[in-house]
Design a protein around this nucleic acid. Structure first.
Length: 609
RNA sequence: GCACUCGUAGCUCAGUUGGAUAGAGCGGCCCCCUCCUAAGGGGCAGGCCACUGGUUCGAAUCCAGUCGAGUGCACCA
């Protein structure tokens, strides 16, 4: 396929022949304009040629060689518009599966990385959904993808949560979800006026965590977190534990690398006397204070140094962690974990990325830039360029700032429960027969989870998301259920056609009988590969979500199209033979496009709605 | 103070590497189920694309400045 690339080449060849080579942009013509694809290339050429753009466009129209599938070309003032051959185009769309060529690079996507002290809340949902979708999109774009989840098992939050268990003598009943139970103690501790007096005890727990003595306790939380994330549709290849990152000596290896750089130093005097500092001014211009302390004068490392070591490892600058299987995801794939008693990674299975995407809250912009700059300091400019911080704004809850510490949050589990409940309620209200079916809960699950995922990624990551029940769980408008409904409609047409004995694979199709209404729909399907390419380029899944809406809108508009007398214009089953088969093949392709698109953002199509 | 992000319809947001008359959803008003699912479709109302200047044949988009909002700026983690 790739008609646009062919058009671009054709226009550029014609332009060069006229003596004015250009980089021609091929765009979809506005709906109200003639033609299917157009180019404003004549504007650029007009200047070089000293003629007016309309003249140039007219000349181009005369000379350009039309690629196969383009029926004719026409100059519309200064624009050059191409008209596709409807039958050939639709047939091409129908017969072209969505597949992008494999790329040789390996991408690491790190997401989730939730402190193991408490259950996930709706704010974490955004991180998981963004990261999981990004991984799916890069995979579809042909890259090898490894999803990592960082477990901060030596942090203060985890220590406080575990301390609260013993301090309050709490006992887990084995019924309540473990992360929720643990979180209750954490919140209680932070509301406790006695807390300042308990520092010693908390600190003792922190030391035990660092020694790895409480790992099995943390594992229980991690498993509970994974349960939540699996339910959302997220999948992981590897869990990296902070204690293992530290225990593998990444810190000193990274510092050794940085030691040799002309950007690092150990000042003898001044405010940094005795510390190991890095000057990042060349990589982060405009800073008031260009120096970043990596190792304190006392010899202990700053947190940033740990992050830098970990990032260096992801890019394969050194090795040393050991790994073993941790659990299985719902599809039965093994999720690995770093572990002191694991096996060395002789096959270089993990790490060694060409690009690293860290999905982290935009409040970490500054430290993330420091980590990225460290790659520049280490003399790795190309790795620095491919060190990506997928930065997203935080989530508020009905306009309120979320605080896990103070217990101001809605848990991810509760949000998913409620979403499924609402979906089922709507189902029983508008389609009682369906709600009585055995698979109704599964249908409600797909709708509810889909609605939440979609709400979390339909707009740009830089936007603050205000989680409101009515909006996040809405089932109409710009939502996943709107797209799912269109996909189900397409499936229904195919099912009925099958029952009536019509071919749905394009055999017997009279492609030339297709009118322009059908072309509009096929053109929308043809956009998917470029949408994926754009999503990869800008590192954001929101364009895929927006495309899903566009596709559903196009399909619904086509489905409801009327002729001048107000009669349905595209009823497939009542179309004359030949046209009917062509339309069925198109509907089949659209149906697949829905599944392909929604799969990129981790949303499943229900069997019925 | 410095840095980063953002400012598009009443509200929430899209808007491809600058290109043709700036688009959706929600909310408001009005229509459409003797037609493959109305969780749908059509129509109306609603815009100095924050402001000013610049670059360009052409700016919501690029540059500079101003105003406004958010976030971050420890030898903390």
């Amino acid at each position: 396929m790739d008609l646009k690339a062919q058009l671009k080449a054709a226009v550029e060849r014609a332009a060069a022949d006229l003596g004015a080579p250009v980089d021609a942009a091929i765009q979809d013509t506005p709906a109200s304009k003639p033609g299917d694809y157009g180019t404003p290339a004549a504007f650029q050429m007009a200047k070089a040629l000293g003629q007016n753009p309309a003249q140039v466009a007219a000349q181009l129209a005369q000379t350009v060689q039309l690629p196969a599938g383009i029926a004719r070309v026409e100059a519309a003032g200064p624009f050059l518009n191409f008209f596709v051959d409807v039958g050939a185009f639709v047939r091409g769309v129908v017969e072209t599966p969505f597949a992008l060529p494999a790329r040789p690079d390996k991408i690491i996507v790190e997401h989730t990385s939730v402190n193991p002290n408490k259950e996930l809340h709706v704010g974490h949902l955004r991180n998981v959904v963004l990261g999981d979708s990004m991984a799916r999109i890069f995979r579809a774009a042909g890259s090898r993808v490894e999803v990592q989840n960082y477990i901060d098992d030596t942090g203060r939050q985890a220590a406080e949560a575990l301390f609260a268990v013993s301090h309050y003598g709490r006992v887990w009943d084995g019924v309540q979800k473990y992360d929720h139970w643990l979180g209750e103690g954490y919140v209680r501790l932070n509301a406790d006026p006695q807390k300042p007096a308990l520092e010693e005890g908390i600190s003792a727990v922190m030391h035990r965590l660092e020694a790895g003595e409480l790992r099995s306790e943390i594992e229980k939380v991690v498993r509970a977190h994974l349960e939540t994330c699996f339910r959302l549709g997220a999948r992981y290849d590897l869990l990296n534990w902070e204690s293992d990152v530290v225990g593998s000596g990444f810190l000193s290896q990274a510092m050794n690398i940085l030691e040799g750089s002309r950007y690092t130093s150990r000042p003898q005097e001044g405010k940094y006397a005795g510390a190991f500092v890095m000057d990042v001014s060349e990589f982060m211009p405009g800073l008031e204070e260009p120096n970043v302390v990596l190792v304190r004068s006392g010899g202990t490392a700053m947190y940033a140094a740990k992050d830098i070591g970990y990032q260096f490892w992801k890019f394969g600058l050194f090795e040393g962690m050991k790994f073993k299987p941790f659990t299985q995801d719902p599809e039965g794939n093994t999720v690995w974990t770093s572990a002191p008693d694991g096996e060395p990674d002789l096959g270089r299975r993990f790490g060694h990325a060409d690009e690293v995407i860290n999905v982290i809250d935009s409040r970490q912009d500054h430290p993330q830039t420091v980590v990225r700059s460290a790659l520049g300091v280490a003399g790795q400019p190309e790795k620095k360029e491919r060190s990506v911080h997928l930065s997203y704004a935080f989530v508020t809850l009905e306009g309120q700032t979320i605080s896990g510490r103070r217990g101001i949050a809605v848990s991810a589990d509760d949000a998913m429960d409620e979403a499924e409940r609402r979906a089922l309620a709507v189902l029983s209200q508008i389609n009682p027969d369906l709600a009585a079916r055995g698979d109704a809960p599964e249908i409600a699950r797909r709708i509810g989870i889909g609605a939440i995922r979609f709400a979390m990624l339909k707009s740009e990551p830089t936007r603050i998301v205000d989680f409101r029940w009515e909006q996040a769980l809405a089932l109409q408008g710009d939502t996943a259920p709107y797209v799912q409904y269109a996909a189900v409609r397409a499936a229904n047409i195919l099912r009925k056609a099958g029952e009536a004995g019509h071919a749905v694979d394009g055999s017997g199709a009279d492609w030339a009988a297709l009118p322009d209404v059908d072309l509009v729909l096929a053109k929308q399907v043809a956009r998917l590969p470029e949408v994926v390419a754009q999503s990869v380029r800008i590192h954001s899944p929101h364009v895929v979500a927006q495309y899903a809406l566009d596709l559903a809108t196009a399909f619904n508009a086509w489905y409801n199209a009327r002729d001048r007398s107000g009669k349905p214009a595209t009823n497939v089953l009542q179309s004359p033979g030949g046209l009917r088969e062509a339309r069925l093949a198109l509907v089949g392709r659209v149906r697949r496009a829905f599944e392909e698109t929604l799969d990129l953002i981790g949303i499943e199509v229900p069997a019925a709605m």
